[in-house]
């Protein structure tokens, strides 16, 4: 009897410590942010619940510029990383898995901060790229090298994200290509489909749910990530997490609700992306499970 009870609760019991840490820190933090964003901050005497912070944030020019920039950076990084990843995976699908794992797994282990610094050292106007271009005579002076850091188009940030996230998408796509997509392609081949027909009618439709799922994860991450834009971004507009951080660091404690409102809005976009991802992966899982 006791054994039966234990075995019924075994999985929840084993999961409890991890869930406690995850849930406690995440839900607690989210709760605090939500409460403060609603103007409830008794430490400085604010006890009236209102949507003022949201009104202020959503109405400000600075927030809109930030929001657009964040969508731009996350969107462009995701699209570039995904397209390059699919091409790389297609190129490497028949190579031994030793080679592809070295190529794709090494960048995954490098922290974003290190990647950002590395990219900065290569693409800054005093960096390796500029000096190389100058010594090759492509530009007169290293300083003539195009500004790719702290620039209008966030090239440095996007480059860092592409370098970091592309291998992740590529590994997901590669797993799909080496699995059932490869077998289905052989079937299509014996049925007379040319290389292009096999890709377009069989391989791509079969791997596309995986591609979309992986790119949604990349989008959610790049939308909410802080450190790379903080290091390599301009001071105006900043992307949303950096803006939230600036508000949070403000000497005026009354700016705190605005900072938290931005955080809640970031969480909302990320959560929507995650929900989309879950729906998609359930559809893929359901299909696989019943076949």
């Amino acid at each position: 009897m006791v054994g039966g009870v234990f075995s019924r609760f075994k999985i929840p019991l084993l999961l409890a410590p991890a869930l406690l840490v995850l849930g406690g820190l995440f839900a607690g933090g989210l709760y605090a942010a939500l409460v403060q964003s609603l103007g409830y901050f008794p430490a400085i005497g604010m006890t009236e619940v209102s949507l003022d912070a949201y009104r202020e944030v959503l109405g400000s020019r600075r927030f809109l510029d930030s929001l657009l920039l964040t969508f731009y950076v996350a969107g462009v990084s995701t699209v570039l990383a995904t397209v390059l990843a699919v091409l790389a995976a297609l190129a490497l699908r028949r190579s031994p898995s030793r080679i592809s794992s070295v190529i794709f797994q090494v960048p995954i282990t490098v922290p974003h901060l290190v990647a950002a610094v590395g990219i900065a050292l290569v693409v800054s106007q005093t960096g390796l790229g500029a000096r190389l271009a100058a010594s090759l005579g492509l530009i007169g002076e290293p300083a003539e090298f195009p500004a790719l850091l702290y620039d209008r188009y966030s090239v440095g940030i996007i480059l860092t994200y592409v370098w970091k996230e592309m291998p992740f998408v590529a590994l997901v796509v590669l797993a799909g290509l080496r699995g059932v997509a490869g077998e289905l392609e052989e079937v299509a081949r014996t049925l007379g489909a040319s290389a292009w027909q096999r890709f377009w009618y069989v391989v791509f439709p079969v791997i596309s749910p995986g591609i979309v799922a992986a790119s949604l994860i990349v989008f959610a991450f790049t939308f909410g990530a802080f450190e790379v834009p903080f290091l390599l971004g301009r001071s105006y507009p900043t992307i949303l997490p950096v803006m939230a951080y600036d508000e949070y660091r403000s000497v005026e404690l009354t700016d705190r609700p605005a900072a938290m409102a931005i955080n809640v809005l970031i969480t909302l976009v990320t959560a929507l992306t995650a929900a989309l991802y879950l729906r998609l992966s359930r559809r893929i899982g359901g299909r696989r499970g019943s076949s």
Binding site: E183, L184, A188, R189
Partner: peptide, 15 residues
């Protein structure tokens, strides 16, 4: 794809 040899595999492998 040009051999006219259609193959049926151990698994159905329907698209």
């Amino acid at each position: 794809e040009k051999r006219g040899a259609a193959m049926v595999f151990q698994k159905p492998l329907l698209f």
